[in-house]
């Protein structure tokens, strides 16, 4: 089994059933995990910020930095692998916050809000999620089985 690592502001896709896609240290950032049990393919994005208007120049070179430019690319990537929208299973992890996080540092909350808005507009249903809190998370998706796990504070859960 080979591990494919997704860095911050990056995304990876695979149709190799032996691969596992992993991302580490999800704080306020969010990982969207998509798998297609029919085509046997999976993809993951680890975006850092909600909106590309924050830095349009960066959005051109690193679209996966932002939810609004990155998430559509993840879905398009899955379609290029031959997946169909109705077969996709979508899960979400991350969006954590520092303590007392109500104001300027609520990046995690804003990351999640924009995600919900985008999914609502395009009728994507979130099958499972582990978001919020002051945790740092590691998320994995096993391409062959479509199994998704989130580990944090020494414990691993199936998503």
């Amino acid at each position: 089994m080979s591990a494919i690592t997704v860095d911050i502001s990056d995304m990876k896709l695979s149709a190799n059933p032996d691969d596992v896609i992993v991302t580490y240290a999800l704080g306020s950032c969010i990982a969207v995990l998509v798998c297609d049990p029919v085509r046997v393919a999976a993809g993951m994005i680890h975006y850092m910020l909600p909106l590309s208007e924050t830095s349009p120049e960066k959005a051109k070179t690193k679209p996966a930095m932002f939810a609004d430019t990155g998430i559509p690319l993840l879905f398009q990537g899955m379609y290029k692998l031959g997946c169909r929208k109705q077969d996709l299973v979508v899960k979400v992890a991350g969006g954590g916050a520092l303590y007392d996080d109500k104001g300027i540092f609520s990046i995690g909350k804003r990351n999640y809000t924009i995600l919900r808005k985008m999914f609502w507009k395009s009728s994507v249903i979130i099958a499972a999620e582990d978001v919020g809190g002051s945790k740092s998370r590691t998320a994995r998706i096993y391409v062959g089985s479509g199994r998704c796990t989130v580990s944090s504070q020494g414990q691993e859960i199936d998503l």
């Binding site: 704080g27 306020s28 850092m48 520092l98 303590y99 996080d101 740092s136």
Partner: peptide, 15 residues
Amino acid sequence: SLGLGADVGEMARKV
């Protein structure tokens, strides 16, 4: 917050 160098303390910190 961005996970640039996460340690065991994770996000247990205040601004």
